[in-house]
């Protein structure tokens, strides 16, 4: 019967009744790649990923699982090393960012993996591949904050609020009456200034920082 199976497909519908045709394959992969491991290894803080021997000390003592279900540094490392890019992106891309850097894993790791930095490197690796869609509020704030520090060397409250609302597409919200009233109050009490001071010759530092962060 086997030799005739190719004739049993009519309009793309399988008619032979071989069971495996009805069931999705359980085979995880037929080809493995170390491409992702190589990439993470080269990122800042990622080099110690190769030392891991998957004992689970990091995830066993991790602070996060009480609050963030499924956060598991050992598994992130495993997925990168085995090249399970799809699983990493589909199931873990929103998790890798949640690390609070308590460093328990790093201090306890029996192999000297700098686990916290490796997890950061994996997050960076995912970011570089642009797997994250729309920015969440805190991510947007982080980004604007960093931009401002690099650009001006200091934080201008008015500017950062304006940029934050515009970046998250909520300019209308900012112009609501209670927000304006609050802003006015802060202005008159001297909490914020309309034009923040400038730092002398910051341009040079800014340029250097940008070069370094390239």
């Amino acid at each position: 019967m086997a030799e005739n199976t190719d004739k049993m497909v009519i309009d793309g519908v399988e008619l032979t009744g071989i069971w495996k045709e009805f069931l999705p394959s359980r085979i995880l992969y037929e080809d493995v790649t170390t491409e992702f491991l190589d990439e993470v290894k080269k990122l800042p803080g990622g080099s110690t990923i190769v030392r891991c021997y998957q004992c689970g000390t990091c995830s066993g003592g991790c602070t996060l699982p009480d609050f963030v279900d499924k956060f598991n540094p050992r598994r992130f490392i495993d997925l990168v090393r085995r090249g399970h890019y799809d699983i990493l992106v589909n199931e873990n891309k929103d998790l890798v960012w949640k690390c609070v850097s308590c460093q328990r894993c790093t201090h306890r790791c029996p192999r000297g993996v700098n686990t916290q930095e490796v997890v950061r490197a994996i997050a960076k690796f995912l970011e570089d591949r642009k797997v994250f869609g729309k920015l969440t509020n805190d991510e947007a704030f982080d980004e604007i904050f960093m931009e401002e520090v690099i650009e001006d060397g200091r934080i201008d409250e008015v500017k950062i609020v304006k940029d934050f609302y515009s970046k998250t597409g909520r300019l209308k919200e900012m112009m609501s009456s209670d927000q304006i009233a609050l802003g006015f109050k802060m202005l008159t009490s001297g909490r914020i200034k309309l034009f923040g001071g400038k730092i002398k010759d910051w341009k040079k530092v800014s340029q250097r920082l940008k070069e370094e962060l390239q």
């Binding site: 004992c55 689970g56 000390t57 995830s59 066993g60 699982p65 598991n72 050992r74 306890r108």
Partner: peptide
Amino acid sequence: TRGRGAEVTLKNQQLSLRAEETIMDRPI
């Protein structure tokens, strides 16, 4: 259980250990 003991704490006057059950991918 495949998973290295991570820490030992006291919970309700009883020893409580934490580790990862690496085959299940979950901490215990």
